[in-house]
Design a protein around this nucleic acid. Structure first.
Lengths: 121, 121, 121, 121
DNA sequence: GTGGTCTAGACCACG
DNA sequence: GTGGTCTAGACCACG
């Protein structure tokens, strides 16, 4: 895994874990790697992984069984998607439209770009 | 001006100045407020304003006349828009499309939302 | 380290660091002292060191690992030498030749002086 | 006259005046323009010209006759050249040789460059 | 008046 | 531990 320099590593890890959960690599309810193991695998400070897990715990994406380990919550995928959906519609999209207007980009132009990206990515 | 807690104030000020430039409140080539004046107006430490100005100087948005003050560059609006345009098409938009696919949002659905936002904002 | 009064300290520190890098005291890719440590060593305010580091970061001489510290870039020596070389040939040398002509110093005379200095320094 | 942004304007003006003196445009002993006139001609703050004149007064390049104006000193050209000569041999040249060694430029290489510049400039 | 630099020191996020 | 940001305020060169 490659880390972007500008975004906190712990958030990048959290995002990555979410991605693995909603794509079924870490199915809902199943155990995920220990802090230690993941830290070794990602060549990262264990504190950083702790922070990622704590972050996802707060959001209800992960659960913790004392002495056993961390698990994806029963409804982790649903929770993640709900989170994403709300930040998408309430933050990302309005920001994008605002920029778009500031740059005098028309809706048609935008739709074309989105269509192109949609096929490529 | 209200500051968001998460983004550095000096960047928020820089952004704000860019906005004022491309909307013509600080026309290309004209003088902008002195460091001290802006600091007083925004209730911020002068050093913070210095930092904002230095940031925009690096990007070629501002210029400097010794002992006189800061000016919007001759082509400031163009420069700012070019910056914005490239980050829009190369970062914002691809990120959006990625999220959109992860959430199984169709292009049609998206276009509708954009249309609605476009009129409201 | 002794500071000259006329040049900004942060630039003198930056220059000094460049010198240490191209002479191999801080090899390419290796970690350099933390902001705090260097500030203590040079008896300078940490902010001043931050400024030096930020300056070299912009120029691609230093790199940054989140929460770990600053490193000389992989190709730091090369970058520094390229900078120096261009300012040497495009600024220093032409200025010197101009002065030399204004003073009616012949090329022969100059070459002799350079030869002498070259052995002494 | 075009001003460089990095060097103080008053020094650039002083240099320019020196140039005019040693090239005979303002002959030794003759009156030079009033502060006011020069400020108008150069589109510069009168204080800046005052500073230039004061600077040259200190160096013995100019003289002042109260109520009449500023004059190039009787031996202005000589004084200027002596100044230049000493800063050339004691500062410029040693600095150049130091850079040259740091960049592994040989004396031969340098001499060639100087020769080329000598003809072009 | 203008900006540029610096100190002293705080608080914070991050690893 | 690391760097990043910010305040408060000083001093200076310059125009």
């Amino acid at each position: 895994m490659q880390f972007d320099t500008n975004e906190p590593i712990y958030l990048q890890i959290a995002d990555h874990l979410c991605h693995l959960i909603i794509t079924g690599h870490f199915p809902d309810g199943e155990r995920i790697p220990s802090v230690r193991d993941l830290a070794v695998e990602l060549e990262v400070n264990p504190n950083t992984v702790v922070r990622s897990y704590a972050h996802l715990l707060e959001q209800g994406v992960l659960e913790n069984q004392r002495g056993i380990g961390y698990f994806a919550a029963k409804d982790a995928s649903k929770t993640i998607k709900a989170h994403k959906r709300s930040s998408f519609y309430e933050e990302e999209l309005p920001a994008l439209v605002k920029t778009m207007k500031a740059l005098d980009i028309s809706v048609e132009e935008l739709v074309k770009s989105i269509g192109a990206l949609h096929e490529t990515l």
